[in-house]
Design a protein around this nucleic acid. Structure first.
Lengths: 228, 228
DNA sequence: TCGTGTTTGTGATAACGCTCACAAGCTCGT
DNA sequence: ACGAGCTTGTGAGCGTTATCACAAACACGA
């Protein structure tokens, strides 16, 4: 079990466990945590927690639980968060500025070390302690600062071009906030965060429950009519 | 097939198809689109596109493809985007302000109709044409403006309380940008967007590929040593 | 030392999702 | 009218993920 590759679904949950454990370590004095408690905090099933953690190794003690600090360390290590990953952010609009000063990144070991744009209006301005540079300097800066992660927060029609510039500069990990699909070579990893897709999914289920409520209401009235 | 419930995975892809189709309708003059073409634009498999669309109904024509306008309408309707969904945003920090003025929402029929915070520094200020109100007014405003969707962009430790206020006000759909798990009754739908989790997942795979490269390098040197 | 109570680790199984492959069905030219 | 050439819709098979259920392992008190 230990040497099996870690399933994607598990990798996606490790950061949630990490956050829950950090929260525990700060607020409670507990030295150990059971899969049940961790599951509750992470909002998942206890069996899932145990199976997920078992992919990392047998770090629990039966009858006791998991040592909080040790587990924290193991997950941090597994996620590669013991080293810091310099990132570059392209696209300094409203969202880009918010991301540039987002504390959640730095708290988790991600340092945005360079900002880029193409518009003369923002190139040269300062945001979150960094001066915005022109996109043409990207390749050079990536090499200098050893940048590993590219973040795209441009309008959708520029995203593909920026992605290609990142690839050309040797960046292998890209996080895309622009609402568009970007195509990259197979050795490059792209993840996307789409702010409005999630709203559209909510809309689907909201409409569905409202439709059911409406149908039930109509049905109720029909029944009343039949009886009355 | 037609009356089966639509799988979650399909629902999550409908917005992507929608975006691809909108893009097509604007840029190309094509009246129809094949599953192959749509798949290419959406970055998925053609068979997946066909199966996904088949859940909505038989809207394609064999040998021809799908009528772009008709498919656009059907997906829009299925996602519940024919009506607009007023949303309330709580937490007016950097991210909150960026979300409040994010064009991607309004372009897709989501109107943020009220902003809330608790800090005296921001209550009363204006952002994106709306005046920030105090969180205590939430319930009242939700009822007045018929708000269906709640968006949370507070610090993590306030998220749960805000979620409960939304639930109390009768909101059934919540989008959570705060990096924390929120618990709600089963009839309320919460989706989360976590900006840094995606980075952590990237970090995992980045580390993995770097580790492989390092091991291969070490192995190469060992081989050279053995031979030399 | 042994029994009781607790919690992990993991087979087994079920549910879900993805991909393939191909018949059914359409268009168009002859 | 008919055959050639496409493209859809979907059954079948496979891989992944979730859940259950329980033996193995530990702590602790008597």
């Amino acid at each position: 079990m230990r040497n099996r590759p870690i399933p994607e679904a598990t990798v996606a949950r490790l950061p949630i466990y990490l956050r829950s454990l950090l929260d525990m370590a700060e607020t409670t004095g507990e030295l150990t945590v059971s899969s049940e408690e961790l599951a509750r905090r992470a909002g998942v099933n206890a069996a899932k927690v145990r199976k997920d953690l078992s992919y990392l190794g047998s770090y629990g003690t039966r009858g006791v639980g998991y040592d909080v600090e040790y587990l924290l360390y193991q997950i941090t290590r597994e996620l590669g968060l013991t080293q810091d990953w310099p990132a570059a952010l392209v696209g300094i609009g409203n969202l880009g500025r918010a991301l540039a000063s987002y504390k959640g990144f730095s708290e988790r070991g991600f340092r945005i070390s360079a900002l880029f744009d193409v518009s003369d209006d923002v190139v040269g301005t300062e945001t979150g302690g960094l001066t915005v540079r022109h996109l043409d300097e990207l390749k050079e800066v990536v090499a200098e600062d050893n940048i590993c992660i590219g973040i795209i927060s441009t309008p959708p029609n520029s995203a593909q071009e920026v992605a290609e510039r990142f690839v050309d500069a040797g960046v292998k990990s890209i996080l895309n906030f622009a609402p568009s699909v970007v195509n990259v070579p197979p050795d490059v990893n792209v993840r996307k965060v789409d702010l409005s897709i999630e709203l559209q999914i909510l809309s689907f289920y909201q409409q569905r429950t409202q439709a059911i409520a409406t149908a039930r209401e109509a049905n109720r009235r029909l029944g009343a009519q039949g009886q009355g």
